[in-house]
Design a protein around this nucleic acid. Sequence first.
DNA 1: TTGTATGCGTTATCAG
DNA 2: CTGATAACGCATACAA
Lengths: 339, 339
Amino acid sequence: MTRKPTIADVAERAGVAISTVSRHLNGHYVSRAAKKRISEVIAVLGYSRSRNARNLSLGRTGSIGVVVDSTLDLWFTQLLAGIEEELSKHDASLMLASLDLRGHYDAHIVHGWIREKRVDGLIIAKPGKRERPLLQKAVECQIPVISVAPDEVVKNIQVVRCDNIAAGATVADHLADFRHRKIGFAGGPPQSLDSKDRLLGLQNRLKQLGIPLDRRHIWWCESYQALAGIEFARTLLGKPLDITALVMGNDALALGFMRVAQQRGIRVPQSLSIVGFDNVPEGALLWPGLTTVAQPMREMGRAACGQLFENIALVRDVQIVEYPMELVVRESTGPAPDF
Amino acid sequence: MTRKPTIADVAERAGVAISTVSRHLNGHYVSRAAKKRISEVIAVLGYSRSRNARNLSLGRTGSIGVVVDSTLDLWFTQLLAGIEEELSKHDASLMLASLDLRGHYDAHIVHGWIREKRVDGLIIAKPGKRERPLLQKAVECQIPVISVAPDEVVKNIQVVRCDNIAAGATVADHLADFRHRKIGFAGGPPQSLDSKDRLLGLQNRLKQLGIPLDRRHIWWCESYQALAGIEFARTLLGKPLDITALVMGNDALALGFMRVAQQRGIRVPQSLSIVGFDNVPEGALLWPGLTTVAQPMREMGRAACGQLFENIALVRDVQIVEYPMELVVRESTGPAPDF
DNA sequence: TTGTATGCGTTATCAG
DNA sequence: CTGATAACGCATACAA
């Protein structure tokens, strides 16, 4: 049983001072000779720095916080994959918090992180009105924050998101190609920036194309969860359908909607085309597969994490990074019935 | 800008020594008077311990590693939710590693964690033959490991899993209730302990019920991924169907299978009943919903994490914790066609 | 029961 | 360029 070698072991064996080894480790100036000897000793001993000691000395915690409504969110797993990729480069660890996992909203854990400076930075997925106090507190306490796909604009907070307006336009084009002229839109919560932008893009492009989007064909769901989609479907499909294509605010809603539609024997896409946003993997697993506009969520996770570390290293101006979205055509969309 | 208070600040303000505060913090003996004063000062100052300094002093890292094939695994998100719940109690952080996220198997990151003692303990989800070296190394390096739903038995490794044999029997009963007599089983990889046990339970109970399970109606898929289920469906549904009910090794496989089945117009459950295992949330989102046997994954995550911390605190004998599974009847199973 | 002193492994400051 | 040495914040023998 031999304990893990420390920087002191390396220094002694290489015949130099501890501080020289430290400098070498951090890429500061060291003579070629010393550099070589130290490297050799490190290799022989299998030395690696202690994260804890290093962070203690640097006054950091060495871990970042990732907060999300629910880790069960279909959307989140992909983001997490991206974060993980980036995180492994930085030898940092992760603290996870779900705001709404236990059946009720509870942000006190994250408030604690901020107050007690338990994290070096924060990635917040889809922050909305509810998360406003959280964001403010983080800014006050000088904790860098990246918000991913925020549901509202917040000043002084760095943002990673997609170009939802363009995405809406893409959907408009796709449906127009199929000759749809009676199109509906059902967003997430009406405050949601994502939904508003998607609708905006859809609306504008449809207008350009000379296709009407009747106000009575615009609806809003309670949340972005599949259950809300199910609920919406039950009310919408209770009365005669006046549209041939339906654009849902995200994939989860669309999936929920499709379940009810199929249950009621509505043929998708023959009677009704359905489009979602996000491209969650589950959309490809059912039949018909869900046509959707993909967010590069994994890449967004990487970007969010990467930028967070940059902001931790040095204070920078906040900026907004916007990714394009890409149409993924599967089976849930097809020609308009009338045509 | 006032920096975070330290234990020294508390000690000074309370008029006691640092060590007394430390003892109080760790629940050791302190006089009632001192206890009270210290508590007050802590409250006033809003003091909280530095995780890093504490762990450095204790010789721990303060974070645990969670290893999984892919964080995108439908199965994993729920486990993670449970782990998160437990983790927040212990003020520990998390390091995440996907073995197979980047298109090829790569365990070097986790090997690094073990070699360099970057984690206090490890939770490994569904370890199989591939992970054997990892487990061995962890045991060698004295790093506590909990394996969740392992695909093979490993000695000296603590296990959290479900009673898959009983689960198989439950499915047998369910299908027997629906008068099915031509039943098929398609497992995950043939080495998988989960699949073998599920088959075993199914087989035994069917035998008791006097229902045959033809050897030619037992198949194995390449993996546990939905894609493997799709592939399997393509070959099985290519020829005339000789069964009225099909039990898939897990939900992901079942979901993939159902997609192809629906695509080919096979009526589920009128022509073919389908059952899965795990109860991933997606199974409830399609129509017909997938009948399955639920693993209490969130609870398993909690248990795995909780036990890991116990093992970190003190060396204990390894044990196996086994949870019951529960049948979740949805729409993908129904009466046998012949009846 | 309490205080003193030392160690945990690094980084950074400041003379040489 | 290099080497002492003081933080970093806490835990714990040991002495009182």
